[in-house]
Write a protein that binds this DNA or RNA. Structure first.
Lengths: 138, 138
DNA sequence: TACACATATGAGCAATCGTTCAATCGTTTC
DNA sequence: GAAACGATTGAACGATTGCTCATATGTGTA
């Protein structure tokens, strides 16, 4: 399994992207490269995590976790942001199927679309070491 | 449970942050607000998700998931980025205890620090609908 | 000592993000 | 029809991000 490509000036370019980076264990590198998710998958993943990387959107999600289904103005009030900001944020969440809308007259009621988000949320809270977590069984 | 605060010009400001947003169900809003994670918790959460919101860092994590423990230059080669970019990225991951370093001579070997990340990763892949996922049991 | 090497880091810059402001759309009420 | 209202959207602007380039640090080797 050892292939030693690190003797001097013995530079091997592995990825098309990498501009000749030297490698110590070429087999391992090649194996890892083969196992990496596709570019598209990585992009989607990054996109989803990016959605959760904003306090405002996180509060929105947390509110929906607790409140079940809420209109935009209540969500805005509960999460402490303007209705415009909330609407922009909900638009992003909607585009990636994190939340769903139900329209009734001039109101728009939002709710979470799938349970992955709750798990993602709780798992991440576990990671950061929560001192709080009242969204148990709303 | 219904409190009707939405009759005209009857605007109630709930959060200190919110600049008087009207509310349709004040009780619900108040309850949801009480249940929200603390500001600090939300910030930490957003920060952690932010770490995972970059394709380069995601590939790094995926590589470590598969490869176990790898040096910076192998990680750079496997994930298709420059060593500088990889080092910068690993620094961020290290600061938030997502990865750990082991130094041996002039090499630095990185590995994942906790299992939450793997779960986060797999859960998110489930959400986006993976067409790929070869990081099963490196 | 001097050099090569693996890694780390700071500055700078282009790109992206999140907010606010203003305008708009569709619905309800008068 | 007109006005009020909830929600949506686009533009603009400041803040943040992630890269590259250049340089620094520390280790192994001649």
């Amino acid at each position: 399994m050892l292939v030693h490509v690190n003797s001097r000036s013995n530079v091997v370019s592995i990825a098309a992207d990498a501009c000749s980076v030297s490698v110590t264990d070429a087999d391992r590198v090649a194996a890892v490269q083969r196992a990496l998710p596709s570019e598209e998958c990585v992009q989607n993943l990054a996109h989803v995590f990016g959605l959760l990387a904003d306090p405002g959107r996180l509060r929105l999600i947390s509110a929906l976790l607790e409140g079940g289904e809420m209109c935009v103005c209540d969500l805005a009030a509960a999460t402490g942001q303007s209705m415009s900001a909330a609407s922009h944020a909900l638009r992003l969440l909607r585009a990636d199927r994190v939340v769903k809308v139900r329209r009734a007259g001039r109101m728009a009621y939002y709710r979470l679309a799938d349970s992955h988000v709750r798990m993602l949320f709780d798992l991440a809270i576990t990671h950061v070491g929560h001192e709080d977590g009242e969204h148990g069984d709303g």
